[in-house]
Simulated assay, not measured.
Amino acid sequence: MKKVVVGLSGGVDSSTAAYILKQQGYEVIGITLKLSEVDQCSLDKQVCCSTKDILDAKKVASFLGISHYVIDWQEIFKEKVIDYFIKGYQSGLTPNPCSICNREVKTGLLAKYAKKILKSDFFATGHYVKTDFLDGEKVIKRGKDLSKDQSYFMALVEKEVIDMLIFPLGNLTKEEVRKIARENKIPVSQKSESFEICFTAGKTPEEYFKSIGVPLKTGDIVHVSGKILGKHKGLEAYTIGQRKGLGIRWKEPLYVIDKDPIKNTIIVGEKEYLLTDSATAKNFNFLVPIQKWKNITVQGRYRQKPIEVKEYYFDGDTLKVIFKEKQQKMAPGQILAVYQDDILLGGGVIT
């Protein structure tokens, strides 16, 4: 009997994934990560990895009759994800902590832990992602439910980890998963979904920084012409492409074009200044060798419509893509995920 470790968060998706794997005849082991000291969620703020989630995961494991372990990785999570998020925003970026977390904690590191410590054959999660084979190599594909597809967040996960991953929900829709959970009386079948960025509990970056006592430094909002138009609340409160909430007046709508952490300024301009014909991503992670790529598309944020690419170049570290048509500038710090049809080819951090 093959052994599979499931990242059991205490939510309906991972719980249903564990149920499906047990039904398929695997020896299933649940692991829940303690990443927060939060005791429970408020009624309107669902955040994963709280003490309540751990208790929910225990209930599910008991209901399914599987072994269950809780691992305290709060220090690892703080160092690899929360600190990355804070430093990124303070550097003028718009970081994507979920993609980093999947590589460094919840998927990548936990899969390696499962293999080394628990001698697991596979590692599974409740992500809406599929796997397949291309020329004999295991690859990541978009999930069936495109409204829930989470392949974008897998772009930085190392190839060696991909080989041991299983995604039981890849061929299901969210509604189908809920139905399976309800019909089989899984304890968390009615539980609401958690936020994408779990540790912010639904707060905006500005609200989050204030909640942890990190002061925001005000500075000038500068038009591309050089004219100072007003004051910003702190670089952390803005992202590339933002139009609303700037608090300035101009004869035409203005957008955030860039952020300068050295001068502590927000640069704004008309929409044409937001358009570009290219994007670059550093530290590129290849899931499929570039020699096998053809007719690629890219995504610069979660749920963005795939963008067609005319040309691409790789210099040994950084990938540059040239779009077929001009696009809105992508936010530095986000992930550039590259696809061929629905196959995830890899990804890197946008510069």
Rank of each mutant, 00 (worst) to 15 (best):
V349W: 03
Q340S: 15
V224R: 06
S62P: 05
K185I: 06
I71T: 00
S211Y: 11
I228Y: 01
T16N: 11
F122I: 03
V224F: 13
V288H: 00
G213Q: 09
E236R: 06
D149M: 08
R142W: 05
K210W: 08
I76T: 00
I257G: 03
N283R: 08
A18N: 04
P332Q: 05
Y152W: 12
K310Y: 15
V6K: 07
V177R: 07
A61P: 01
I266N: 12
A17C: 08
G300D: 06
L344W: 01
P332L: 13
L216P: 02
L43E: 08
F209C: 10
V157Q: 04
S91T: 13
K138L: 05
K259V: 00
L169G: 12
Y238G: 10
P187E: 00
G10P: 05
I257T: 01
I228H: 00
S211C: 11
G348E: 02
S189H: 07
Q340V: 02
Q74I: 04
A57Y: 02
V177C: 08
S62A: 11
G234S: 09
C198S: 12
V81K: 01
T107R: 05
T280P: 02
N264W: 14
A237W: 05
I267H: 03
L235C: 06
Y26M: 05
I343K: 13
V288E: 02
D13Y: 03
F199L: 02
D341Q: 15
T351G: 05
D72M: 01
S225Q: 04
K259E: 00
F123S: 11
S211D: 13
I296N: 07
K141D: 05
L169R: 14
G88E: 15
R249A: 14
L165E: 07
P97S: 05
L110C: 00
M1P: 14
V28F: 06
E270S: 10
G333V: 09
E176A: 09
I290K: 10
R178H: 12
G143T: 13
V105E: 05
I66N: 07
D145C: 01
P95R: 14
K112Q: 14
G213T: 11
L319I: 15
K210A: 08
Y273T: 02
N96Y: 07
A57W: 07
L55F: 07
C49S: 14
S9M: 01
V338D: 03
A17Y: 09
S91P: 01
Y273E: 11
V60A: 08
A111D: 08
G7A: 14
N285A: 10
A279E: 07
V129E: 01
K233N: 08
G10C: 06
V214W: 13
I31Q: 01
L165G: 05
V38T: 10
R142E: 12
E175R: 06
S147G: 08
K233F: 02
K148D: 01
S225G: 00
T351D: 09
L319E: 01
G269F: 08
F133C: 09
K231P: 00
G213H: 06
F77P: 03
T265H: 14
V188F: 09
K310H: 15
L33G: 04
G245T: 09
E37K: 12
T107M: 09
K58W: 00
I350P: 02
A124F: 14
L8H: 13
K191P: 09
I162M: 02
L345C: 12
D132V: 10
K116I: 14
E104G: 04
L21E: 11
